[in-house]
Design a protein around this nucleic acid. Structure first.
Length: 482
RNA sequence: GGCGAGGUAGCAAAGUGGUAAUGCGCUGGUCUGCAAAACCGGUAUUCGCGGGUUCGAUUCCCGCCCUCGCCUCCA
């Protein structure tokens, strides 16, 4: 079976995604900082990573997926204090919210989801190693910094050399707590305790304080995946300095390649620019649902664009998603039977007996750098003749089986949430009494060929948000599409 | 200033050295009292601009213009 090949940020080439140990594909994803609800841009990243994992697993490869929760940093401390609750309670609340949203979006749970606070000893050990080998130094105030000049390959990932870093950093880089660095590009490994930190500090050989923000990913990644693992993922913005610093501190400590493959997805844009609180163009899943869309439509829309290009978010995209998902739902319903479940497909793939049948071109598009737009193009190309054949009743039983399995692979790779197909019985129950009565009156008027009255009632129903569809022997009432 | 991504029909978005997938929209038709839904068909002689290489470039090379991101916390 063909395998996924994916663009690697470090080499700038496409590489096959393979487990280095031949068994389990081990990968790390930078997770959320839990100081508020994640926005849909954050979820684009987690959705793309979910797609990656699903494609790997549906290729028959077992994975170990680690995604951290950042539960201590300036923002979580500041926000917990203004909320007047402990850091632990504060981050637990937002972590729960993140889990709820992720579940709604059908994102697979990572195998390990470590938090920074639970891994302070591991981070301290890593700092000790770096100090012992001369890659780090203590400053006068009890902080510890990584000495960038001690690690020659620094800047390879983002292609910034240290001179450029210095020039570009500008004049505003003098953070009050970082006055004691030897060099502006050095970054903090351990932050000494400050009054604003309140009770949020830990003991260390260098005094009270807390770990620097890059450290947790190195320490936890290596703890759960080994000193060297298969792939590390995150949004493009993390490329520098976060991932650059992770590489430096990890590889300086171990002398081994930290991650073999770096995968960065592009950002989600809104109104032509990056989402941010200051621009007021930031949406959460809850905001989307308030506008009448579901997580399924959001998932479809966010995965419809290539993960390597920026996509501009809009409600039109959700509408398009809605229509396409309904088309798929209708096809699946007409196909009958049930589609094989995710785990079943993975088992078949692992045994080398998963056949995507007529959907092979769709699957192969996904294997080419997770090219979802091409995959969707192929999907509809494949679907059209099948829809026709199905409507004509000319599809043989074995062809229907092949279609069920093949389509299931695609649906599961995308992790699509297929909506219920509205049937008359299920629908009738949801129609309010007065709407049903109006519809009934309109039907009566229509039977009497009183077009004026029946059209008037139909318009009135439309204003109320309901659409009438006349059928061969009656009518249906449905909520209008937006 | 440095680094990076991108400019393809009304919108979104693939793609290839040999002549432009797909979705939405729009539009014509079938159906309908008229609609809606569904179905059938149409919808870029052209791929930011100007050169060059080539039998042939949207696809390769050079220059230019424009948009966006990163260089500071950030998915």
């Amino acid at each position: 079976m063909k395998l996924l090949s994916l663009h690697d940020t470090l080499s700038r080439k496409r590489q096959e995604v393979l487990p280095s140990d031949g068994k389990v594909f081990r990968f790390y994803c930078c997770g959320p900082t839990v100081y508020g609800p994640a926005h849909i841009g954050n979820f684009r990243t987690f959705l793309v990573q979910d797609l990656l994992r699903r494609v790997v697993e549906l290729s028959g490869i077992e994975t170990c997926h680690v995604r951290n929760i950042t539960d201590v940093d300036d923002k979580t401390i500041r926000e917990s204090q203004s909320a007047g609750i402990s850091l632990a309670d504060f981050t637990a609340g937002w972590t729960a919210r993140f889990h709820d949203d992720a579940r709604a979006l059908n994102i697979l749970k990572p195998h390990v989801e470590p938090g920074a606070v639970q891994h302070i000893p591991e981070q301290i050990t890593l700092i000790e190693t770096l100090l012992a080998s001369g890659h780090a130094y203590c400053s006068g105030d009890g902080s510890v910094y990584f000495k960038v000049s001690s690690y020659a390959p620094y800047g390879r990932l983002s292609r910034l050399d240290t001179r450029e870093l210095r020039a570009g950093a500008g004049e505003s880089a003098n953070d009050a707590d970082e006055y004691d660095k030897d060099n502006v590009s050095d970054f903090v490994l351990w932050k000494t305790r400050k009054p604003v930190d309140g009770e949020n500090y830990w003991e260390s050989p260098w005094g009270e304080g807390r770990p620097g923000w890059h450290l947790e990913c190195s320490a936890m990644g290596m703890k759960y995946l080994g000193e060297s693992f298969d792939l590390h993922a995150g949004g493009v913005d993390l490329c520098f300095p976060h991932h650059e610093n992770e590489i430096a501190q990890s590889e300086a400590a171990t002398g081994k390649t930290f991650a073999r493959h770096w995968f960065h997805n592009e950002h989600l844009m809104v109104d032509g620019s990056k989402m941010s609180k200051s621009l007021g163009n930031l949406y959460t899943l809850a905001d989307i649902m308030e506008r009448g869309f579901g997580p399924g439509e959001l998932r479809y829309a966010l995965l419809a664009g290539s993960c390597r290009t920026k996509i501009n978010f809009s409600m039109e995209r959700l509408q398009e998603a809605q229509g396409n998902l309904q088309r798929l739902a209708a096809f699946i319903a007409k196909l009958g039977g049930s589609l094989p479940a995710y785990d079943e497909l993975c088992r078949l793939a692992a045994a080398g007996s998963l056949d995507t049948g007529p959907f092979l071109p769709v699957w192969e598009a996904l294997l080419e750098d997770l090219n979802t737009p091409a995959a969707l193009g192929q999907l509809f190309t494949v679907l059209k003749p099948l829809e026709k054949a199905l409507a004509a009743g000319s599809l043989k039983e074995e062809e229907m089986d092949a279609a069920r399995t093949g389509l299931a692979v695609i649906v599961q790779a995308f992790g699509w949430i297929i909506p219920e197909v509205a049937d008359e019985a299920g629908n009738a129950a949801d129609v309010p009494v007065e709407i049903a009565q109006m519809a009934e009156q309109r039907w009566a008027a229509k039977q009497e060929k009183n077009w004026q009255e029946s059209d008037r009632l139909r318009d009135e129903l439309a204003v109320a948000g309901w659409t009438i569809k006349d059928t061969a022997d009656g009518y249906e009432v449905e909520p209008s599409r937006q």
